[in-house]
Every structure is written in structure tokens, then in C-alpha cells.
Nucleic acid binder design. Structure first.
Lengths: 215, 215
DNA sequence: CGACCTGTTGATTCTGCTCAATCAACGTGG
DNA sequence: CCACGTTGATTGAGCAGAATCAACAGGTCG
């Protein structure tokens, strides 16, 4: 569905004016920067400030440890806003997953906008806390079930999920290995709870069973 | 160090006027409610609104799954503010760990205060994201080391840590069992990295080693 | 004192990781 | 067109770390 041109960085694209979910009121369309798949939007250690909104595509927010382990703290899709930081420095990095358009909203330092930013920050906090429960207390099957239900919600509850990210990204988000993610998909398939027409497309066959799996 | 009277609920105590870390400017001292150990401050499902500040004591923010597993998303100590919610309903519950004094700050709905609340919410988000890395990608030893370093920081870097919470609380915070927490303490003791004069008091003997443990 | 709670330690089990092979899809270049 | 290399995904075998089950010690409180 997206352009697959090959830029290392970003390029300006004409912005559109429609309002997407998560966009604060009184924000006007700005230019959209295009990022090729797996491009860095900001890095760990970069100066923080502006907020970013996904126009199209998908973004992963991740962090690397010294020995190469990676934790993805969140995925962001069209309409969602990311880039909040408590300090002036980014503790995580943001990367495009597929070809992705990004709007830069504004510097987050303006106090007059705090009332608009606060709900977004609180939503992010809530999502992170929810994910703590998954990482701290759920097994591999429950983790993947929770992930699929989350994606299903965010993609309109059509029970047909598009996975823009590869198995390693899912694994690093769920605190598993990509082999385990693959095996759990297999188990869900064998149990006729989901179908996998392709590796990047999931049909939910038994929504109730999936919900039961993560309580 | 604290009163251990036995109230099921809270009782009003005279508030003091000094400023503690994390207290937003222009907030004046209000009455302090006293909570006995293990008292509920708010429950999962309660209506959200006001923010709370720990005057003295310690609080755990936790969530239970249907089958009884528990995840503690955060601990809060004197001066810290908690009670943020993205929706009008609490998704987590807050409980006192020991005898604890709580100030109710104000209804969080006033937009004029968003500029004061936002930094606190962002700090909470940052802490939650940090904890995602611990739960998703670190082993038992690394988790406990990170926990001890965090507490050491928050208690003034004296390398003498006071643990107000029991092993089960630590376990539910770190996504482990209390037996594993106990065993890791043993290993750190055997390695002369910490000493445990009592089960609730930790002396850090080798700060560098502890820091190396969690990269 | 006895009951209970917290914490420690041991034995065993099991989930998910590591290491490794295989396969399919895709792109490139001869 | 096919040979080759690469990347992503799947699957298998064996292992390790943490969970589970269980026993026990020390302290506190009725």
C-alpha cells in the first residue's frame, strides 16, 4: 500500500488536512517527512523536543542494552503521536518499520499546549502500564494473544490483522525470541484460533478463545 | 519509624508545610490521611480524579489478573505523586505498604494545572518504559540489581537501603516469584556484593559490581 | 505457648531459550 | 532463464533458568 523508495533519511511530502485520531485539536496539517523502511527517526541520546505523528506506516520505539538485547516499548500506527520525554534527551529510539510518513507537531516545551499533550502522555502511560502486566506475569501464549487483540482493536476490530512488523519485532515487544513467537503462532493455528494466510496477515477465527487466553 | 496503629481506612492528620521533592509549585499543604499497613487507597475500577502525594511511608500500585496473578507497576515513597489515569477509571489499585500518610493534591481535571501535572506524568511514563526493559529482557539477577540501584538512588545514594516491602512485593514488581527473589539475594550476599543485616535492610558493598550486573 | 506470617532453602518440573537445520520468497547478475 | 546469496520464517533437539512444590526456621502476636 505504500511507496517503497529508497532513502536513508527523510524527505518532505505534501501534507494533507484531514483530522486523524489522536491529533490534538487546533493542530494544522504540516509537511510529512517520508522514512524508508527501518530508518531512524530519532536515536537514543538525541535531544528531545518535538512530538511526532504517524501519517501512514508504522513506527517502533525501542531501546538496546549494551550486550545487544532489544526491548520494543511500543508500536505506533497512523494517527498516533509519539516522542514524549521526561528529560531533554531521548531514552529510546524511534524507527520506521515500513515506509512511513511522519508529521512533526511542535516543540513539546510550550506550556500553553500542556493541556493538549497531557491526555496523550497519560494514554501512553496507561498503555505502558498495561504492557508491564503482560511482560511481568503472562506466558508466551498469553502475550501473543494480548498482542493480537490489541492490534485487532487498533485496526478496527475486523478480525483481520495486518502485521507490518516482522517476527523479531514482535518478539522484542513481547519479551520473547522470534522462534517462540513462531511456535506460538503455530499453536494458535493448530487450535483453529487464528489463520495465517501469509506470515504478515492474521485472521482471527475464534475471538472468544483469544480473549480467554489473556483473561 | 512509623506509627503502626490499626485503622482499616484513613484518618485525618495535621499536614506540614515543607516542600518535598516532586511536589508541584504553588501547592499548599493539605491534611494528611493516615493509612495503616496494607490499606487500600483506591481500587481497580474506582473513579479516578485527584492526585495523591506520599507524605511518609510507601505505596504500591498494582493490578490483579482474574486468576490471581499480581503485577506491581510501581512503588512510591515520600514526596512522590501518583494516581494519574488516562480515563475516568483507575486501571490499577494503590495500597499502603507500611503505615503511610497521603496528601490529596487536587482534581486532575483542571486544565490550568496541566502544565504542572505533565512533567510528573512524563516522569511516570519514563519510569514505566524503563521497567519494560527490565521485565522484557533481563534475568532474575539483573532485575534485582536494577531494583536495588533504583532504590539506592531514591533513598539518597547512601548505599544502605531500607526495604519497606516484603519479598512477595519485590517479586510481583520484578515479575519473579518470592523464592527466586530470596535466592538472588543469597547469591548477591555470597558474592559479597550486598550484605543483609536484616531481611528488610540492604547494605551495598560493591556498587560497581551491582551496576555492572544490569549493564 | 501455639498459630501465623515471612523468609530461606532444597528437589523437581517445565517453559522458553539456544543452537541449528530447513524452507520459501525475493533480488541480482551472469 | 537459472544459479546464487540474502532475509524472514518455521521447526527440531537439548539445555538452562525460573517456577512449583515442599519443608523448615525465626519472629511476632494473640
Amino acid at each position: 500500500m505504500l511507496m517503497e523508495t529508497e532513502f536513508a533519511g527523510a524527505v518532505q511530502v505534501q501534507g494533507r488536512t484531514h483530522h486523524t485520531p489522536g491529533l490534538p485539536p487546533a493542530t494544522h496539517a504540516t509537511a510529512i517527512s517520508y522514512y524508508a523502511p527501518n530508518a531512524m527517526i530519532y536515536a537514543q541520546g538525541d535531544t528531545a523536543g518535538p512530538l511526532y505523528q504517524v501519517a501512514f506506516g508504522a513506527v517502533r520505539i525501542c531501546r538496546l542494552t549494551a550486550d545487544g538485547r532489544r526491548q520494543i516499548s511500543a508500536f505506533h500506527f497512523a494517527g498516533e503521536v509519539f516522542g514524549f520525554e521526561a528529560t531533554s534527551e531521548h531514552h529510546f529510539c524511534a524507527e520506521s518499520i515500513e515506509g512511513t510518513g511522519i508529521r512533526v507537531l511542535r516543540a513539546a516545551t510550550g506550556d500553553g499546549y500542556a493541556g493538549q499533550i497531557l491526555p496523550l502522555a497519560l494514554a501512553g502511560l496507561s498503555r505502558a502500564q498495561e504492557h508491564l502486566l503482560v511482560l511481568g506475569r503472562q506466558n508466551a501464549t498469553e502475550r501473543l494473544a494480548a498482542f493480537l487483540l490489541d492490534l485487532n482493536d487498533r485496526q478496527g476490530n475486523h478480525e483481520e490483522i495486518d502485521l507490518p512488523m516482522q517476527r523479531l519485532d514482535i518478539a522484542d515487544y513481547l519479551g520473547l525470541t522470534f522462534e517462540t513467537v513462531s511456535r506460538v503462532f503455530r499453536r494458535l493455528k493448530d487450535a483453529r484460533i487464528v489463520a495465517l494466510p501469509t506470515a504478515r496477515h492474521v485472521d482471527i477465527l475464534d475471538l472468544g478463545a483469544l480473549e480467554t487466553l489473556c483473561e
